[in-house]
């Protein structure tokens, strides 16, 4: 079973890297990019066979290590 975790800065937290990418896109001539947020994707290979159990475990992993919930939110996809 695979899990995909997407970690993003929470809305309202300034993302200096995303802002830098937005500026770079503008200077390349791409018009109308009004916002860029940069995050990360973490793919996990799991020995689990039960999707609900897998999701619960991955949620615990996110809370403990994969995300810093002070500033980051996460989304879990099991598949």
């Amino acid at each position: 079973m695979k899990a995909r975790v997407t970690v993003m800065l929470k809305s309202g937290v300034l993302d200096p890297q995303g802002e830098a990418v937005r500026h770079a896109l503008g200077s390349l001539g791409f018009q109308g990019v009004t916002g860029v947020r940069q995050g990360k994707v973490i793919e996990l290979d799991l020995a689990h066979t039960d999707a609900a159990k897998a999701e619960a475990d991955v949620r615990a992993m996110c809370e403990k290590l994969l995300a810093n919930t002070v500033i980051e939110s996460y989304r879990i996809e099991i598949g």
């Binding site: 937290v13 300034l14 200096p16 890297q17 830098a20 810093n68 002070v70 500033i71």
Partner: peptide, 17 residues
């Protein structure tokens, strides 16, 4: 120490990158 939760807040990328 912030990642351990012993101090509040986080250290983010420098504003000037």
């Amino acid at each position: 120490l912030t990642e351990m939760g012993l101090l509040p807040g986080v250290l983010m990328r420098n504003a000037g990158l």
